[in-house]
């Protein structure tokens, strides 16, 4: 953002004439560049104000609230870092944070891996009308509101739902259970819903990325005697590094900040088996009215997201450059 802001006015005023084609009027040029800079700021100002008011201000306020014990209405008491201490020592809160990390497996790793597989398979047909159908079908989960998806999945996963009906139909009665209601299966079951939602997004991004790979690379690989698997690891995978980076970034954030799927399908139960930080922040702030603790957990969540996402960015960008 910094360079964009800085170079825009400069570019319009000076850089367009890099040779300095008119050395006779240096004064005017400098004055113009100054004005241009201020004009640039004025153009940016409305967006900057919105950004400041709706993004930076709440962020700063959240950090401030996290240092208080406050019910949202009455007087607040300054408690320093006590709320953070609670976040890192409360057994339930730690379990809740761990749940979010378990969800990364289902929201990120599985969709990216499956996405790579599906994308390699459908790559050859993406050109024709069949490709459009495949892309639409795969992208559909992204279009359906997560709340609707959550409701539909909780029906399918219920004890009389589709999944159990299918199991019974093939004689696996022993395996049927209330997937979202039992302690051992609730979190993976929620994860499966996430996989379903994220798979389409990952596949579409990866298919698009594959279509940009130079076909001559494949040709060269084939001439060197590479099979489809070798081709995948030698050509496809390295070429998709940036797309995989985007997929991982988006899905890791979705896993750590998940809310709607969990809220609809299990409400965090049974027990706190599927409670995630997003849900707990909402509960703490609005039902238990512990705005301070909720804010502290929010700040911790933000830092966790950055901690996970920044290395992914660095890894996928850095090696490319």
């Amino acid at each position: 953002m910094t360079s964009a802001l800085g170079s825009a006015p400069a570019g319009s005023g000076i850089a367009s004439r890099p040779g300095g084609g008119n050395p006779a009027r240096p004064h005017r040029k400098r004055r113009w560049s100054r004005t241009a800079q201020w004009v640039g700021w004025i153009w940016v100002l409305p967006a900057l104000l919105m950004y400041g008011f709706f993004v930076l201000r709440p962020l700063v306020l959240t950090v401030q609230y996290s240092l208080y014990q406050w019910n949202g209405i009455g007087a607040a008491t300054f408690v320093g870092l006590e709320n953070y201490l609670t976040v890192f020592t409360d057994r339930d809160l730690l379990k809740i944070i761990t749940n979010a990390f378990v969800l990364i497996i289902f929201f990120s790793f599985i969709p990216v891996a499956l996405g790579l597989l599906v994308a390699s398979l459908v790559r050859r047909i993406t050109g024709g009308p069949a490709g459009t159908v495949v892309r639409t079908v795969l992208f559909l989960p992204q279009v359906i509101p997560l709340v609707a998806a959550g409701i539909a999945w909780s029906w399918m996963l219920s004890s009389s739902g589709l999944i159990n009906q299918a199991l019974r139909a093939v004689g696996l009665d022993g395996l049927t259970k209330s997937w979202l209601g039992e302690f051992s299966t609730a979190l993976p079951a929620v994860g499966v819903i996430g996989t379903w939602v994220m798979l389409g997004l990952c596949t579409i991004l990866l298919v698009t990325g594959m279509s940009k790979i130079d076909p001559s690379l494949y040709e060269a690989a084939r001439m060197d005697g590479a099979g489809p698997i070798r081709e995948f690891f030698a050509v496809t995978l390295p070429s998709l590094r940036q797309e995989i980076g985007v997929c991982l970034t988006v899905t890791v954030i979705a896993a750590l900040a998940s809310f709607d799927i969990v809220y609809i399908s299990t409400s965090g139960g049974p027990g706190i088996q599927t409670t995630v930080p997003g849900l707990e922040i909402y509960r703490l702030a609005f039902s238990q009215r512990q705005v301070g603790l909720a804010s502290a957990l929010g700040v911790v969540l933000m830092l966790l997201v950055l901690l996970c996402v920044l290395p992914i960015q660095r890894l996928t960008r850095g090696e490319k450059a």
């Binding site: 930076l56 201000r57 700063v60 306020l61 208080y68 406050w70 209405i73 705005v291």
Partner: peptide, 18 residues
């Protein structure tokens, strides 16, 4: 400066006495 300006209201403790 902008952030400070926007959050100037945040300098005091949140909430109010009943």
């Amino acid at each position: 400066l902008l952030t400070a300006g926007l959050t100037i209201t945040a300098c005091s403790a949140p909430g109010s006495e009943p």
